[in-house]
Computed example of a mutant assay.
Amino acid sequence: VGNLSWNTTDDILMQAFSNYGQVLDCIVMKDRETGRSRGFGFVTYGAQPEADAAITGLNDQDLDGRRIRVNMANSKPAGGAGGFGGG
């Protein structure tokens, strides 16, 4: 979930997304040093149809005064291509 208001909390995110299915996990990412929202978060559902419904229902909608972007998170490929040269 992107373009979150700085004021959006985990609870606000949970409330909005629980209308579309059972939310297993919900977190607004925060800056380590300041504790302030970084403007995006993640919501996890147990079933794909619930996630699809949330994307359809909430993408480009108003939440906490901001038009949020909702899409599937891109998982990082396994294997640790960490950018360090080997050899």
Score class of each variant (00 low, 15 high):
Pro77Asn: 08
Val23Tyr: 06
Ser5Val: 04
Cys26Trp: 05
Asp31Glu: 06
Gly2Gln: 10
Pro49Ile: 09
Thr9Arg: 05
Phe40Glu: 09
Ile12Val: 11
Ala51Cys: 09
Ala47Gln: 12
Asp11Lys: 14
Gln15Phe: 08
Phe17Gln: 03
Trp6Met: 10
Cys26Glu: 07
Val70Gly: 04
Cys26Asp: 03
Val1Glu: 02
Val1Ile: 15
Gly2Trp: 05
Val70Asp: 05
Asp62Phe: 07
Asn3Arg: 15
Asp10Ser: 07
Pro49Trp: 06
Gln15His: 09
Arg36Phe: 02
Thr8Met: 06
Asn71Ala: 12
Thr8Trp: 04
Ala73Phe: 03
Asp25Cys: 09
Gly80Phe: 02
Ala16Gln: 11
Val28Cys: 08
Thr8Pro: 04
Ala53Asn: 07
Gly46Gln: 05
Gly57His: 04
Met29Ala: 14
Gly79Met: 03
Gln61Cys: 09
Leu24Gln: 05
Phe17Tyr: 02
Lys76Val: 13
Ser5Ile: 00
Lys76Ala: 11
Gly79Cys: 01
Arg32Gly: 12
Gly46Pro: 00
Gly80Pro: 00
Gly87Arg: 15
Thr44Arg: 15
Leu63Ala: 08
Ile27Pro: 00
Asn3Met: 10
Arg67Asp: 02
Gly57Ile: 07
Asp62Ser: 13
Phe84Leu: 13
Phe84Gln: 13
Tyr20Gly: 02
Thr56Asp: 11
Ala73Glu: 05
Gly86Glu: 13
Leu4Met: 04
Asp60Tyr: 13
Val43Met: 00
Lys76Tyr: 08
Leu4Arg: 09
Asp60Leu: 10
Arg67Leu: 12
Asp10Val: 04
Ala81Tyr: 11
Ile12Thr: 13
Ser37Asn: 09
Ala47Glu: 14
Arg67Trp: 05
Gly80Thr: 08
Gly46Tyr: 03
Leu24Lys: 12
Glu33His: 14
Gln61Thr: 15
Leu13Thr: 00
Val23Thr: 05
Leu24Cys: 12
